[in-house]
């Protein structure tokens, strides 16, 4: 209960903080989307296949861009429903894999870059943005800390399932979240996502130590 209170007050202060940071941004300058498309084409119209279509926005990216990640209530609901429908859970219902493999997923920041080969290992690069195991000091601060993630949720299987959904498609949980949709974009494999969930939810994982 106390932990919950601290967590929620921390979350509240973070909301206030990020709200304050964004308040310093000037209001968006108006521009015809067709003009922006022209500039986008100037950079990528000559990109080779299969890269060519990557810069084209899907509906969710378009709305989050247009509203600077503050969608209207109606759009919020629409995005959440659409993204929720896209989440595919493992057929056997098991969302927890191997935490040691999950640690590799969290630490690996390669793969999918235009300078990478097709066989470059891919990772979720979780540590780029999140604090996780207390022993890993090289972590980013773009996302919230995930220390004790499973422990704080009493290793609840329903919470593990939610975490799988969040990794698969962060916007199914929170529309216009800054986090990548790793499953929707097929950036991570089902096994990698299960392993990442294990890194968060296995009691033996250093995240919970």
């Amino acid at each position: 209960m106390k932990a919950l209170f601290i967590a929620s007050s921390l979350a509240a202060s973070l909301v206030v903080l990020s709200g304050a940071a964004h308040a310093q941004q000037a209001a968006p300058t108006k521009i015809d989307p067709a003009v922006v498309d022209k500039y986008v084409e100037s950079m990528w119209a000559k990109a080779p296949d299969p890269w060519k279509t990557v810069p084209v926005q899907d509906e969710t990216q378009r709305i989050c861009t247009e509203t600077r990640n503050n969608p209207s209530q109606a759009d919020f609901t629409k995005i959440m429903e659409r993204e929720k429908a896209s989440v595919v859970f493992p057929a056997d219902g098991k969302v927890i894999g191997d935490w040691k493999a999950g640690e590799r997923v969290a630490n690996t920041g390669t793969g999918g870059q235009f300078t990478d080969g097709p066989n470059t290992p891919r990772g979720g690069n979780c540590y780029a943005c999140h604090q996780m195991a207390p022993t890993e000091l090289s972590y980013g601060t773009l996302g919230p800390s995930l220390q004790n993630y499973g422990k704080d949720r009493k290793f609840d299987p329903a919470e593990a399932r939610n975490a799988y959904a969040k990794i698969y498609d962060a916007q199914a949980v929170f529309p216009c979240s800054q986090m990548p949709r790793f499953g929707l974009h097929k950036f991570l494999s089902e096994q990698q996502m299960k392993d990442a969930v294990a890194y968060l939810f296995d009691p033996e994982s250093p995240v919970n130590k």
Partner: peptide, 23 residues
């Protein structure tokens, strides 16, 4: 501020707030 691609990133994802870091 334009989000796109397999990471859903815009420049602002990393460069939109004060005092953030990557790793």
């Amino acid at each position: 501020f334009r989000r796109a691609g397999v990471m859903d990133f815009s420049c602002a994802t990393c460069h939109g707030d004060d005092g953030k870091r990557i790793r």
